[in-house]
Design a binder for these strands. Structure first.
Lengths: 244, 244
DNA sequence: CGGAGTCTTGAAATATGTCAACTCCCGTGG
DNA sequence: CCACGGGAGTTGACATATTTCAAGACTCCG
């Protein structure tokens, strides 16, 4: 299935209408957004924003997956965020970012020039409010990830990562038929997300296949067979702390 | 030197007046805060807030040091934040937190009941604006720490930690005479901040003493002797990415 | 003076990283 | 259509940073 990436969609028909920065907007407010917005698309692998770039626009991710990552001088890199549909790129009142944003699949962005957008924030409390809420959510996620990076074992990291994918794809309603889930990252990218090497990721995923926890239909699609075992393997407490 | 912790201070004389959540407030606005605020004090080691507690108040740290930390079922813990004077506890629009807040030294908090405070946010854009700014700063710091936790070596972690202490104490204007800096955490706490064990922290600090990078006057006070070497040891790029 | 908490140091264990070879895809271009 | 080539993943053997376990020393405070 190919999606026409550049197709203009009216806000009311937008797939991320109820989760993005516009979530709380009324019909009237949407009309304003409709005037200001424009779509940008990126091919898989393309950079969306580079560290220390001046931010000229901000926007919501409509289709696809992108990553935020930071890199040390010698090339070691650490992903600090995974952007799925409805996630926002850019910051209220900040003109720079200190990480790189890269499209890992083909990506469609619903963009706003930064100047008009800042005016919009000032005049539309619904947008400002949602933006704050989203920033706080990001902070919670970042801290949950700090726990993972600092204290979890390789196996726990992988299990937590898979569980997060399940939850986020479920919430987003982008579940594929059956239990099938898409794995949008290469193992190298997963490694950079989890603070591991790609070999360790490969081995741990292999073990979870052998354990009958996961089944892969192809390189990019899998399903969780043994959910309790997955949960157990995360190392989190049994009620499963939510990790959006 | 002992500070009278419970002494009520007027906002205009407050040591964190220009960095805390009230930073942008006008004199009139301060008068309102003055009415609402109250001081709370905690002894070193006391819990300030417990995970999943209902948040009944929020507040700014005036004196002392506190930590935010998350703990796994089996006891492994990871610090996810270090609170120094002017830092804020609590979230606009959130009634719970998902980590523990603990005083590591004696602590004074400038508190607001949550209900009046939320009204205040709604009516005082200066407060709301500063709160957002502080949340975004926290997010940046959290992501910088993700890079540290996921990709840095023990030595780089220690060096980065020390450098952060230097910068934050410098910014806060709490420098002690000369180059002396205070080390507010035990090595076990440092270990929990850096995702290491306390033994590794001890060994690495020992090496940095031998290398002539640090000198300790007593267990809680040290100075940086070789600043370039410290910077080099962080693993960051040479211009020294700011880590507030 | 005692004792608990903190720190140091050593030896041994181990999880993960490193290096290297090989396989499996999948798309491209001849 | 097939062969080729390169990216992605797998697997093994080995290296090593850090943890673990353990014992002892320091130091501050009651």
């Amino acid at each position: 299935m190919t999606i026409e990436l550049s197709a203009r969609v009216t806000c009311t028909d937008c797939p991320i209408r109820h989760r993005a920065v516009c979530a709380y907007c009324t019909g009237d407010e949407l009309d304003v957004l409709e005037q200001l917005k424009s779509y940008k698309t990126f091919k898989a692998g393309e950079p969306i924003l580079w560290r220390a770039d001046k931010l000229t626009y901000v926007g919501s991710l409509v289709h696809g997956v992108a990553t935020l990552s930071k890199t040390l001088e010698d090339g070691r890199t650490q992903m600090v965020g995974l952007l799925l549909p409805s996630d926002f790129i850019g910051r209220p009142g900040r003109s720079e970012i200190e990480f790189d944003v890269v499209a890992v699949t083909d990506v469609t962005l619903c963009c706003f020039q930064i100047k008009p957008f800042e005016a919009l924030i000032a005049s539309t409390p619904h947008v400002a409010q949602r933006l704050v809420e989203m920033a706080l959510d990001e902070l919670d996620v970042a801290r949950e990830w700090m726990l993972l990076l600092g204290r979890k074992t390789a196996r726990e990291k992988i299990a937590t990562f898979v569980q997060m994918l399940v939850q986020r794809q479920h919430i987003a309603g982008t579940d594929l038929p059956g239990q099938a889930l898409s794995l949008p990252l290469t193992q190298e990218q997963i490694a950079n997300y989890l603070g591991l090497t790609l070999e360790t990721v490969s081995r741990q995923l292999g073990i979870m296949k052998k354990n009958g926890i996961l089944r892969f239909s192809d390189r990019r699609h899998f399903e969780v067979i043994d959910f309790p075992a997955l949960q157990l393997a995360t190392g989190d407490d049994s009620d499963g702390g939510v990790l959006v």
